[in-house]
């Protein structure tokens, strides 16, 4: 009698998903890396120092994992959250006090803080090992874009609980946009853009207005930040992540002394 495990592994369904036997010998450990979609991001073999934690700190991987955690918890949170001034705060309170899986919100929030820190630590490591040097120059540039998007993700998410912390932090942060040169209504050069004596840059048409969708942080801002936070920025991050990982492989894998 074959065991249950053997029956499963011999079944047509199993074999249609995994096109090779278990990765128990050298040949199959190589094959698994080549034929599995998720594993084929990796090379088949790697220099021992390239996986030493004292060298890599694992911070890039941790950041990517945190991004996945944020995505999963974020989708679940969207079930419980309505991005309107009327409901936003109440829904977050309900997550804390009523819903049994409300802890998702703490994980999402702390994970977001942790992700900002791990991105910095990852870049710190990449700088200190000189890993941005040729041929990896452009991947560092993509990394800087990813840093920027991580900060924007965190910044847009900051507003969603619609508590005092959220609204005033975004107010202080977005007030900076008022002072954008030329394009902010209190920025240097704002007076230069006039049409027939009428100011083109006012508090209803400047950079801050574009960011907030209104003159003040309000309903429009909440909607705008919600869509940026849940759809636009994550899509951009996903695309850049794919390029980032692809280039790590194409630029010769993880850095190391030549």
């Amino acid at each position: 009698m074959p065991g249950l495990g053997e029956i499963i592994r011999e079944s047509q369904i199993w074999k249609s998903i995994f096109r090779h036997p278990m990765p128990l010998d050298r040949r199959n450990r190589i094959v698994v890396m080549l034929t599995n979609f998720f594993l084929h991001l990796h090379p088949v073999s790697i220099k021992k120092q390239g996986i030493a934690l004292s060298y890599t700190w694992c911070m890039g991987g941790v950041t990517f994992f945190l991004f996945l955690v944020e995505t999963v918890t974020g989708v679940l949170l969207m079930f419980y959250y309505r991005p309107t001034v009327e409901w936003a705060y109440t829904d977050i309170q309900m997550l804390r006090d009523v819903h049994s899986l409300g802890i998702l919100r703490e994980i999402h929030r702390w994970g977001a803080h942790a992700m900002v820190i791990t991105v910095w630590l990852h870049m710190y490591r990449v700088f200190l090992t000189g890993s941005y040097k040729p041929p990896r120059e452009f991947n560092w540039v993509i990394g800087v874009f990813l840093l920027l998007l991580t900060l924007l993700l965190s910044f847009t998410g900051y507003l969603l609980p619609w508590d005092q912390l959220a609204v005033w932090a975004i107010t202080v942060g977005s007030n900076m946009a008022r002072a954008t040169p030329i394009l902010g209504h209190e920025g240097p050069g704002q007076q230069l853009l006039t049409l027939g004596g009428v100011d083109m840059i006012t508090n209803a048409s400047d950079a801050r207005f574009a960011l907030l969708g209104a003159r003040e942080v309000g309903e429009e801002t909440l909607n705008r930040f919600y869509i940026l936070h849940c759809i636009a920025i994550p899509l951009a991050v996903a695309l850049l992540l794919a390029i980032h990982f692809w280039r790590v492989r194409k630029d010769g894998g993880i850095s190391g002394p030549l």
Binding site: V32, H42, S45, I46, G256
Partner: peptide, 15 residues
């Protein structure tokens, strides 16, 4: 970093 120059398989060492 040059010392551990030998190659290891990603499965199982990295995964």
């Amino acid at each position: 970093e040059k010392l551990d120059n030998e190659k290891v398989l990603v499965w199982p060492d990295l995964v």
